[in-house]
Design a binder for these strands. Sequence first.
RNA 1: GUGCCUGUAGCUCAAUGGCAGAGCGCCACACUGUGGAUGUGGAUGUUGUGGGUUCGAAACCCAUCAGGCACC
Length: 363
Amino acid sequence: RARTGIFSTPHGNLVTPVFAPVGTQATVKTLTPEHLKEINASLVLSNTYHLYLRPGDELVRDMGGLHKFMRWSGPMLTDSGGFQVFSLAQTRKVDEDGVTFKSHIDGSTHRFTPEKSIQIQENLGADIIMAFDECSDPNDHTYIQKAMERTHRWAERSLNAKKRSDQALFGIVQGGVDAPLRAESAKFIASLDTPGIAIGGLSVGETKQEMHDTLDVVTPLLPENKPRYLMGVGTPEDLINGVLRGVDVFDCVLPTRLARHHSAFAPEGRLNLMNATFARDERPIDETCDCYTCTTFTRAYIRHLIVAKELLAGTLISIHNLRALIRLMEQIRNFITDGTFELRVPELLNQWNNNAKRALQSK
RNA sequence: GUGCCUGUAGCUCAAUGGCAGAGCGCCACACUGUGGAUGUGGAUGUUGUGGGUUCGAAACCCAUCAGGCACC
């Protein structure tokens, strides 16, 4: 079910499958737009919740919109704020109309509704915007159905609230790891008139098997001609497994967060570059990688930057980690095009599966 | 040369006769629709050195070494 495709936006075409770096506060942390171009990033995600709180969506609108404000000329996507209200806000109270929450920055009280989220996202002006959804505790099974049904009503309200015609609104499938609920949600969201469909509520602590099973339930129920966006995923192996199950778009903070926490994607598994073992290692992070970091700097130098708490470390590792995932997607697209992707999945997983590598290392 | 003070983990220091500890650092691990964060685990000692007193000494006594300060 792996496929390639093209999704057109006012700021260029997305060739899928694609991985989107996350630029929460109108910046991919530690990187300039120039860096993003250099690693061949095509889609950048930014956040409604953060930009609404600071500097304010109306300010961004008055500065000419998100693209102009941050000087990123390629396709952009904004999250609806649903997940952040769930994961970041100090306290939140959900009712049928919306969510009241307290800012994680200053504790002030705010309220999001589907209509408010869409209005903010229209002020920000990304190419792809998301329906406002409710993310519930994945372990609270009785609540998941309620949250899913409310997410469906909120998806319809998000769609009705939308005024701009140059933005693509995606609905979001929820339903935890409950197969019947996921199927119901997939059918409902697929029935809405949206140009794309997202799968939310995964990679929030469930097992890999549960994620795979959930994707196996959801993607066959989605229309072939719309992109499927798996939100918040992930690791190299998650991308491979996602594409295998028909996913077209991914975003994740992991490559840039790990980079700031000294961890790099490498052929021998994830490397913690702060480790003493790299103090005199003259190799690049990944000898097969074509990024600026790998073609220029040694592990020893990067470790020195980390230990000395130099900011350049985060930049260099972010460049590499993002390039690693983007390059993986480029390879996957080529394999899909020449019809060899499914044959190569075991090889690709073996190359990127951390657990396998770690087991090997510990011998 | 004389007198006084100090000497305990890599660093700064606790423990005043009863299991040698903390903070930081160090060594690792975790991180999935971003709080450059945070959490978790681990290692580290000839208590400057040598002797003595004591059931028992980082602590008390003697000597010695090193550093600091003061005086000559």
